[in-house]
């Protein structure tokens, strides 16, 4: 079973600076990690490979430094890595990102499954996975929380929805986006790290993939950021201590008054 896993490199903390002109993130000087929600996709993929054989190709679209995320994925147990990097890709929205990733996945050709994260912690849209499926016309299951079985060119999964867990049977190839419940990500091993160091990461560009520049990056993105605001982090609410003489009683009374005043009870 050959699996493709698109991962994203994201800033380590939620402490990010923005370019107010362009409405994009300033990435310089910020520590980066694999999007934590992509670790669940990586682990789910690695577990499938361990059961059914095959290989995992991990891909990312990002700056040259995103090779670090790819190498880390290899050190966890992925086999091949591809970096999509080109100045023309910069500033892509989810339309342009999913287009570019889909074109790269087409070049990989021989795959049975694409496993993406539920969403990236920076852009936080969850649109890229379904977008890739649409470009490639792949059957899609989002919010997958477990993989029940794989057989006869099909896969049975459960996905977490409002009413419970919906069980789906999809033909292969198809695309899954996964949630935390699906796996417990492993740490890289020493052997893995060694292999990662030796792994060559090919770089795909707009030219190498023969892509039309009108569909790429900021220019090719249908959505444009027009304004960025920084909401107040603190709400400046009331804080009542419950340790005084009157203890919990008075604090609770005040809370009930607050709830009544806001018409919450």
């Amino acid at each position: 079973m050959n699996i493709v896993i698109p991962i994203k490199q994201v800033p380590e903390t939620s402490d990010v600076k923005m370019d107010k002109e362009k409405g994009t993130m300033i990435r310089d000087g910020v520590q980066t990690v694999i999007n934590p929600l992509d670790l669940y996709a990586l682990e789910a993929g690695i577990e499938l490979k361990e059961k059914f054989g095959g290989k995992i190709t991990v891909i990312t679209m990002g700056p040259p430094s995103a090779v670090k995320a790819l190498k880390e994925a290899v050190s966890m147990g992925c086999d091949d890595a591809i970096l999509l990097s080109d100045k023309q890709f910069a500033g892509s929205d989810t339309w342009a990102t999913s287009y570019t990733l889909a074109e790269a996945i087409k070049e990989i050709k021989d795959y049975d499954l694409v496993v993406a994260g539920e969403r990236a912690t920076d852009g936080d849209t969850g649109q890229v996975g379904p977008g890739i499926a649409a470009w490639l016309d792949l059957p899609l299951a989002t919010y997958v929380s477990s993989i029940e079985s794989v057989e006869d060119n099909s896969i049975v999964v459960e996905r977490l929805v409002e009413e419970g867990y919906q069980k789906l049977k999809l033909p292969l190839p198809s695309l899954l986006t996964v949630v935390k419940e699906i796996s417990n990500p492993r740490l890289p091993t020493l052997r893995g790290k060694k292999r990662a160091r030796a792994t060559e990461v090919p770089v795909y560009t707009a030219e190498s993939m023969d892509l039309d520049s009108d569909s790429l990056g900021l220019n090719g993105s249908p959505t444009k950021v027009v304004k960025i605001d920084f909401p107040k982090v603190t709400r400046g609410g009331v804080k009542v201590a419950a340790d005084g003489e009157s203890g919990a009683g008075e604090a609770v009374d005040r809370l009930i008054d607050f709830l009544k005043e806001k018409e919450l009870i």
Binding site: V233, G237, G247
Partner: peptide, 23 residues
């Protein structure tokens, strides 16, 4: 407490039963 509109500093094992009783 940075984001709370109303915060109670105290032991939840005292506060929640008290709150339940009063509600």
């Amino acid at each position: 407490f940075q984001v709370a509109d109303f915060g109670i500093v105290g032991d939840l094992f005292e506060i929640i039963p008290e709150l339940n009783k009063k509600l």
